[in-house]
Amino acid sequence: MNKSILFGALTVAGLAAGAAAAGTLDDVKARGKLNCGVTTGLVGFAAPDANGKWNGFDVSLCRAVAAAVLGDENAVEFVPTTGKTRFTALASGEIDMLARNTTWTFSRDVDLKFTFVGVNYYDGQGFLVPKDLGVSSAKDLDGATVCIQTGTTTELNLSDYFRVNNISYEPVPIETNAEGQQQFLAGACDVYTTDASGLAATRATFENPDDYVLLPEIISKEPLGPLVRHGDDEWGDVVRWTLYALVSAEELGVTSANLSEMTAGTNNPEINRLLGTEGTLGDMLGLDAGWAKAAIAVGGNYGEIFAKNIGEETPIGLARGLNAQWTEGGLLYSPPFR
C-alpha cells in the first residue's frame, strides 16, 4: 500500500493496483467497511440528503453489498467520483466497487480491465432542452451549444451522432452534473445531454421541471451497472450475486414486507436457497448464510428500490420500461440461484 501512496504523489495513480488486485473480499472484511464509488451527486441515483446520509438507486446497491458482506448497511464509505476520476479510483484500489451510472463498454471491460458484474439500469443517451427553445427533435439542433460531461461515453456518442447526421454543434465540456446544471439553467448551453435517466433525475431538481422537455431521440445503448477490477473473481461474484439477489427477489416475490415470513421457510426451494435456509450458497461466496436476506432487508428487492428512488411515484418518474422483469417484457433476467 505504501507503493500506491508514492504513485499517488506522482499523479500516476492506478498503477499500483497490482498490490490491491487480489483478496478484495478479505480486505473489506478486515477493514469492516466497503469503499463504494458513487457520483458527486445525482438525486435519485446517488446523493447525500440533508443529514449527509447517502441515498439513491446506486447507493442502495452499495448498501446491499455492505449488508451482505459485513451485515451492516451503514458500513459503507461513499467516495464521490466524477466521470473522469472514477476509473482511476477503482483501478488504484481506492474504492472496492463502482456504482456510478457507468456504461458497460467493450474497451472499459477489455482495455481498462474492469469487470462489469451486471446491469442495474438499461439506459440510453437523451437530450434535455428548455421548452421555449422550440425544438422537437434532436435533428433540429444544428448549431446548438451542448453541455456534456467529459470522460463519458456521452461525449463520444454525441460527436458520432452529430457527424453522422451532418449537423454541427458547440460542445461545452463540464466535470460534474452540478456544473452542467448550472450552465444549462443559465442558458450558457442550449442542450444538456447524458443518460436519459440522469436527465430525468436532473430535471426533477429544477425549480420548474415542466419548462424542460426530453427530446424523443435516444441515440445510444447505455447499460449501466456496477463494476470491479479485473482479476478478483471472488469479489466480482459477491457484487454480481448481490445484484442478482435483489433482482431474483423481485421475480420470486420476496419483498421487505414478507422477508422475515419467507425466511421461516417456504415450499419454493429457490427462495429457500436465496434466503439461506437451504443449501450453502452463502458459504460458497465466503459469506454468511443470511447474506442475501441482509441485502434485501436494506431497501427491499430491485423493484422496491427502483420505485422508492426513481420510480413513477417519485419526482423523477421513470417507468420500468426495459428495466422490468423478463416476465413482464423487460430485460431483467437473473440466472437461477442453484
Binding site: K3, F7, L15, A16, A17, G18, A19, A21, A91
Partner: peptide
C-alpha cells in the same frame, strides 16, 4: 515498481 504494477495490470 511501475513496470511490475503495469505488468500486473
Amino acid at each position: 515498481n511501475t513496470s511490475q504494477n503495469l505488468a500486473a495490470l
